[in-house]
């Protein structure tokens, strides 16, 4: 390899079209773009999360019409991530798939403990109904505009949110205290 070539300006490959379009429309709200081995992730501001997802679904050329999964992550023990996103403890993650182009996209939305509510996407994808209920059940994140936000896996009278990192693995005595919902037995 000659000297000239190493000195030459490194030309970065252009960003994927979906990222270009998102930057064009929501430039202030796109926090990070991660492209790891061809897997695209976009970290989006919570205020614009619904609009971004709506655009990704409705836009004719992108048409991310299939919501594969909605899940959440508790980053309370990952200091670097916390610092990067203003100590937002949770991250709600949407996995999207476009049948038209067979492209996949991951949209991550930081949710801080101060404001525990994020806009529900049930209006966009009906399948988000139970997925968001599961996140509410496990992490206690509220979904604004959800038609039926209640526990889905844990018993209705369960206290606490078991997938939070500060929740003990063996529970807080739920299984020991379990008595078929009856007192003094």
């Amino acid at each position: 390899m000659s000297e000239e070539q190493t000195d030459a300006e490194v030309v970065e490959p252009p960003e994927p079209i979906v990222i270009q379009q998102l930057r064009e429309r929501f430039s202030d709200h796109i926090l990070t773009v991660i492209d790891q081995r061809g897997e695209l992730s976009v970290v989006v501001d919570k205020d614009a999360s619904f609009q971004v997802l709506e655009f990704l679904k409705v836009d004719f050329n992108l048409s991310y019409d299939f919501l594969v999964d909605v899940t959440a992550i508790d980053y309370s023990q990952m200091e670097d991530v916390l610092i990067e996103y203003g100590y937002a403890r949770y991250m709600v993650v949407y996995h999207l798939n476009a049948f038209l182009t067979n492209e996949r996209l991951r949209v991550k939305v930081p949710v801080s403990e101060k404001d525990f509510t994020i806009k529900s996407v049930v209006a966009l994808w009906n399948s988000a109904n139970w997925l968001e209920r599961e996140i509410y059940d496990m992490f206690g994140i509220n979904f604004d505009g959800h038609p039926d936000l209640r526990r889905i896996l844990m018993p209705d009278d369960f206290e606490g949110f078991p997938l939070r990192k500060d929740y003990p693995l063996r529970g807080r005595g739920e299984r020991e205290k379990f008595n078929f919902g009856r007192e003094n037995v």
Binding site: M154, P162, Y167, P168, L169, R170, G171, R172, E174, R175, F178, F180
Partner: peptide
């Protein structure tokens, strides 16, 4: 499954 939700033996009940 020594976890918060699992009955540790049905013989308790």
């Amino acid at each position: 499954f020594d976890t918060y939700t699992l009955v540790q033996g049905v013989d308790q009940f």
